[in-house]
Amino acid sequence: MIDDAVRLAGRTAMRLARGIPVVGSRFGAPPQLDLDGRVVFVTGAARGLGAEISRQAHARGARVALVGRSLEPLEDLAAELGDGAAAFEADVTDAAALRRAADGAVAAFGGIDVVVANAGIAPPSETVATIDPDEFERTIEVDLLGQWRTVRAALPAVIERRGHIALVGSIYAFFNGVLAAPYAVSKAGVEQLSRTLRVELAQHGVTAGIAYLGFIDTDLTGDAFDDQHAAAIRSAAPGFITRTMSVESAAAAVLSGVERRAAQVTAPAWVGPLLAARTLTTAVMDDVLIHSPRVNEAIQGAESAATKPDP
């Protein structure tokens, strides 16, 4: 038993050492997944981050299965990319449609090597006490259960190829979800899903990971911040946290993680240190938010707006 514990500690230390920037490569390279010739199955591929991940994966030689709710923009993107791209209509709330999309990708390309579960929505900026229950539950339905359904639909094909599953998460997996509770709950659940998959699928030679991404310059982020209460919360946070990164940088980070079969991907640069110190930073963050006048005013404003009768 002691020998097993020592070996486990050694493996863990080696894995952590490999993740150290610059010097990590001296401890041995983790297994690589060259995207050239691989099949990448991307949900939410019609626009934003999903579309850019698809473009960059295709540029690296991958064949891409573009999955989303609306077929027309997916077909437009497939036409833009040319050979090695195909569109499949599927809403992530529909498990049967996702299975059909996965089967279609296998039929078109011979298999699936990588799943990028990216589809998601932003909730309205309201408190737990005032949000429409249907809005709360729909966010979790799409942002958490949608990723679970995506994985489940493509899993047999990924196991057959000993591939990789990349779940697109967020800093909200460990940030306070004030005025964004269903989104934060979803991303915390996605984090646990990725950890579970990594352990359960290891015996099949399949790897899994999560991308902890900050705010990205996409329509989703713009819609989320196009609200006075969300803007107030944003103004209370340090500027470096709410500064948006380009969609190109975010997509490159996700695909770099896929190629490294990484358990965790962080972007932009400040996310990694905060994630590593999450036990301390989450406690401090909660305390700062509780005592922030601007945050309190935003919460009061959201609650007041929710109680006003419709004109």
Rank of each mutant, 00 (worst) to 15 (best):
residue 97 A to S: 13
residue 123 P to Y: 05
residue 177 G to F: 11
residue 281 T to N: 10
residue 205 G to I: 11
residue 263 A to V: 12
residue 103 D to Y: 12
residue 54 S to P: 08
residue 55 R to A: 01
residue 91 D to M: 08
residue 170 S to W: 08
residue 159 I to F: 06
residue 179 L to M: 10
residue 98 L to M: 07
residue 111 G to W: 14
residue 261 R to Q: 14
residue 179 L to S: 07
residue 216 I to S: 02
residue 79 A to R: 13
residue 154 A to D: 12
residue 217 D to C: 00
residue 244 T to F: 02
residue 119 A to T: 10
residue 137 E to T: 05
residue 214 G to I: 05
residue 75 E to T: 11
residue 237 A to S: 05
residue 298 A to C: 10
residue 143 D to N: 15
residue 129 A to H: 04
residue 51 A to V: 08
residue 256 S to Y: 08
residue 286 D to L: 03
residue 53 I to G: 02
residue 176 N to S: 13
residue 42 V to I: 14
residue 66 L to Q: 09
residue 47 R to P: 09
residue 136 F to K: 00
residue 122 A to D: 15
residue 21 P to F: 13
residue 74 L to K: 14
residue 171 I to E: 03
residue 62 A to Q: 09
residue 174 F to E: 00
residue 171 I to Q: 03
residue 53 I to N: 01
residue 279 T to H: 14
residue 245 M to D: 00
residue 207 T to R: 13
residue 194 S to M: 10
residue 231 A to H: 04
residue 280 L to N: 00
residue 295 V to L: 10
residue 255 L to Y: 09
residue 164 H to P: 08
residue 132 D to L: 00
residue 37 G to N: 06
residue 203 Q to R: 15
residue 295 V to R: 13
residue 96 A to S: 12
residue 16 L to S: 11
residue 65 A to R: 06
residue 275 L to I: 00
residue 56 Q to L: 09
residue 289 L to R: 11
residue 153 A to E: 12
residue 129 A to W: 02
residue 42 V to P: 03
residue 41 F to E: 10
residue 11 R to P: 01
residue 248 E to G: 07
residue 206 V to N: 04
residue 134 D to P: 00
residue 62 A to I: 07
residue 210 I to H: 02
residue 11 R to W: 15
residue 290 I to M: 05
residue 73 P to Y: 06
residue 152 R to Q: 12
residue 39 V to Q: 04
residue 161 R to C: 11
residue 162 R to K: 15
residue 154 A to F: 13
residue 131 I to H: 01
residue 152 R to K: 15
residue 169 G to L: 05
residue 271 V to M: 06
residue 289 L to M: 13
residue 78 A to D: 07
residue 304 S to N: 09
residue 182 P to E: 03
residue 175 F to C: 04
residue 239 G to A: 07
residue 284 V to A: 14
residue 213 L to E: 04
residue 238 P to N: 03
residue 125 S to E: 00
residue 25 S to W: 11
residue 120 G to H: 04
residue 138 R to T: 01
residue 158 V to H: 12
residue 101 A to T: 11
residue 240 F to Y: 13
residue 76 D to R: 08
residue 34 D to Q: 06
residue 34 D to P: 03
residue 184 A to Y: 07
residue 239 G to F: 09
residue 155 L to G: 05
residue 43 T to C: 07
residue 148 W to T: 04
residue 185 V to R: 05
residue 304 S to F: 03
residue 60 R to T: 02
residue 183 Y to Q: 03
residue 62 A to V: 01
residue 137 E to S: 08
residue 15 R to G: 15
residue 227 D to A: 06
residue 288 V to F: 12
residue 242 T to L: 03
residue 137 E to P: 00
residue 277 A to Y: 07
residue 204 H to E: 15
residue 164 H to N: 02
residue 76 D to K: 03
residue 2 I to Y: 09
residue 158 V to Q: 12
residue 176 N to T: 13
residue 96 A to I: 09
residue 33 L to M: 14
residue 226 D to E: 13
residue 131 I to Y: 00
residue 139 T to K: 00
residue 187 K to A: 04
residue 49 L to C: 07
residue 199 V to W: 07
residue 85 A to C: 09
residue 258 V to S: 08
residue 90 A to G: 05
residue 238 P to M: 02
residue 165 I to R: 15
residue 150 T to S: 15
residue 18 R to C: 06
residue 189 G to N: 02
